[in-house]
Design a protein around this nucleic acid. Structure first.
Lengths: 197, 197
DNA sequence: CCTACCGATCGGTAGG
DNA sequence: CCTACCGATCGGTAGG
């Protein structure tokens, strides 16, 4: 009884996976429904049976990314050093999974346009990331672990922007960019205590 | 005698300007020769009389950008604090000329692909930018103006990546991103002397 | 520099 | 989920 239902769910997941991969290789706009469908083993009309428009498929890709992030954030720590360490760990994870970074970096640049279907998603993503980091810098300021005179909100913006900039440069010239080293350097200079004792 | 020649030069410049603008709005791949040609007041076939392929037009846009940068780098200072100040001044200039930043940020993300026609351009651009900044950090290390224990090359990578990451985030949500403030904060924490006394 | 055209590709729909 | 199709758009070419 649940066979067709289950099958449908699996098929949708396959399509979302294929879409994420193709977006990562070519961006959203340059990706075709035919290429995505082919990788999932169906026709592009078949894809449109599951996702009525190209934009609906993108929405599904972003939703699944959010769900994965949320599952990971069960690991969320209280504001402080540990949060910063986990962001560095996330960067370490990312350099071992290029596809994730590809998808994110290409979509982020496309989504600069206010009328891009992922624009609101990225505006929210940036704000939430800045707020999460800012909470930790504020906590560190109160305990004297943030260097005096540093604006916690500006430090948070700096950290998130640095992560994004490193990713694009790393994707373009992987052998010449030490993503994790740069993040550690940047964080350590903001702190009065060792980030990794 | 030089009339036709002059006219041709002007027309080519108009086309390059129109192309830079459209690339900035939509990226390279999503830009059409018809849209670019229309803004310059000719047909797309007319554009192809001046630039034989879509790729040749992109090359001309990048060449002009290099020429403009070179002209600006007559202002190039010897390695040291002044170089860092001028990069901050460049960022101040950029936030008043959104089109330049748009063009750069969108192309950079597309050029992640090794087969993108601007890939080699950006690989070179990153390397040259890192080297220019690294020279200054090395000089500052020798005079004790760089905080002890900071790797000058890693600091250079960090600064360039931060500039790029700030630009994308600023383009997406302009009112929420203080590009210049973030750059000043980041540089100041690396130094033992005031960047802006 | 234009008109007119080509083959290819695109997202989406009809109808089953 | 497929076959078959649509109108739109693309980069590029022929021929002037």
């Amino acid at each position: 009884m649940t066979g067709g239902y289950q099958k449908g769910r699996i098929r949708r997941d396959d399509l979302v996976s294929a879409a994420a991969k193709v977006y990562g290789e070519a961006g959203y706009h340059a990706s075709s429904l035919r290429e995505i469908a082919k990788r999932a083993g169906i026709t592009h009309a078949g894809l449109l049976y599951h996702f009525p428009t190209k934009e609906a498929l993108l929405a599904a890709v972003l939703e699944r990314r959010d769900a994965e992030d949320a599952a990971r954030e069960q690991l969320a720590a209280p504001p402080g050093l540990e949060v910063l360490r986990r962001f560095v760990a996330l960067a370490e994870h990312n350099v071992r999974h290029r596809g994730i970074v590809d998808l994110y970096s290409r979509l982020a640049a496309e989504a600069i346009s206010e009328d891009h279907p992922a624009h609101a998603y990225f505006a929210r993503h940036y704000r939430e990331a800045r707020e999460a980091i800012a909470d930790s810098f504020h906590a560190l300021a109160e305990t004297g672990e943030l260097r005096p005179g540093i604006d916690p909100d500006l430090a948070a913006l700096t950290f998130i922007a640095l992560m994004d900039g490193l990713q694009v440069q790393w994707l373009t010239t992987p052998t010449q960019v030490d993503v994790v080293g740069s993040l550690r350097l940047s964080l350590q200079t903001l702190l009065t205590v060792p980030l990794f004792p």
